[in-house]
Design a protein around this nucleic acid. Sequence first.
RNA 1: GCCAAGGUGGCAGAGUCCGGCCGAACGCAGCGGCCUGCAGAGCCGCCCACCGCCGGUUCAAAUCCGGCCCUUGGCUCCA
Length: 498
Amino acid sequence: MTLHVTNTLTGEKEPFEPRDPENVLLYYCGLTVSDPPHLGHARSWVHVDVMHRWLEYLGYDVRHVENFTDINEKIVARVGEDDLGEDEADVAETYIERTLSDMRALNLLRAEVYPRVSEHVPEIVDLVETLIEKGYAYESNGSVYFDVTSFDEYGKLSNQELEEIESQGDPDERSEKRNPADFALWKAGGVDEAAIEEHRHEGAADAEHACETAQTWESPWGEGRPGWHIECSAMSMTHLDETLDLHVGGRDLVFPHHENEIAQSEAATDQRFANYWLHCELFQMDDEKMSSSLGNFVTVEAGVDQLGTNVLRTFLTAGSYNSKQLYSDETIAEAEERWDRLERAYDAAVEALDSPDARTKVEDESLRADVDEARESFVAAMNDDFNTREAQSALLSVATAINAHLEDREEYDYRGLRTAVETLEELGAVLGLSFVGETTGTADLAGDVVDLVLNVREQERDAGNYDRADQLRDELEALGIEIQDTDDGASYRLPSGE
RNA sequence: GCCAAGGUGGCAGAGUCCGGCCGAACGCAGCGGCCUGCAGAGCCGCCCACCGCCGGUUCAAAUCCGGCCCUUGGCUCCA
């Protein structure tokens, strides 16, 4: 059973074969840092992170590169707003820091490099020059455009015919372009004020001033700024190779961004740009996608604060990366239940392992068989195009096996439980779920205080003062502390997230 | 208009590539039982699906083929 992935280029699910059997080159189209990251971004990040973790689990070394687009009109438009910064670079830096901190909060593995467009202008210029020399691009009024008619396979990723694309070109720019579908590799001059005006928020600097803060670079065609698409080609070639194994990004980038990346890269190198194109589907709000431009987003920061990393990651992987996912209070609540169920079973197993009864030689065949089976189905699910929903199901069935084993039992199967716990830890880690929370000093203290209250409650219960006992339980629950009475005393769970 | 993805139980969401083990997973909600002072958690069991519509292929179709309807995304701001 080997890994299979759905390749947008072919529309087929194919066996994954990296060029080098030991190393995988993974490029992820990162953010334009003009807004705080939202849960839609987090969904893609987490899925890419799970891909990265699974590839490592399979034994590959993963070289993972993820860019930041820090040159963009939308960034310029925010100059002066709040404390974002006084020029384009400041604003970008503010959001890059914010993004990296959000990524840490989501427990993402770090990429090897986070290249920035602003640091790769020379490479971009080189690439553009190559394209001009090879006859794929032309200069016009100080700007450089890619001539789509020169690249026979233009449209192969998004499955469109060139004439269809041509008819949709922006009429305002036709004058400079040979073909309306041609796209800019290099844009002459500074930033267009009108473009800034369009994206300005309240409180931002006026458009004229903002434009003045935007950086321009020298080039063979005069002062100017790089076009949007060329950056990813330049950066992925710089930090990885001319041919990538996996190129991942949001579904909304298929056209024009990825289509153009293919055209300019393959034209320049005569090599296939990426062997596998994977696209993450978007969040579905009521009847539209979540996006920065629609303003209907929840920030990653708010999501982590509200739900905690584990619940959030459970939510974000509750559907396959390449299927749309419904974003609603109900679907979030469901993810919370799924995670809680996992965590409760895990905690119960760990607790049982600590008890003296666990040292027996009882063997529970069905526990062991269920855990083995769960592991197999987890592996099969992940190998089948990173099916995280199925993988979660496998984890949940380990939880059920643990609970069933613990039910009405005097003696435990130590080895069986041990395996179950290790399986949850190991496979959970593939999804970035962490059962062993960091116990901070304050959490320990809180635990001690809760124990104290529970002791008092226990005395009240023994005395038959159930009203008083229930009151204490209600008050603890009002604080988010969940109480469970068991045969040997009450246990509790502190609120998750912290 | 063109391109792409999808329409599966009350909800959510796998399964569709490679037709039979799908008598449709996992979870939530609901119901019954056990446990319990009560509650929760948990266990066992159950309910709910003619798998968008119509036609075809086949011994056999949610899965393959054809047509239709609907939804969503993209069509140069987008993860």
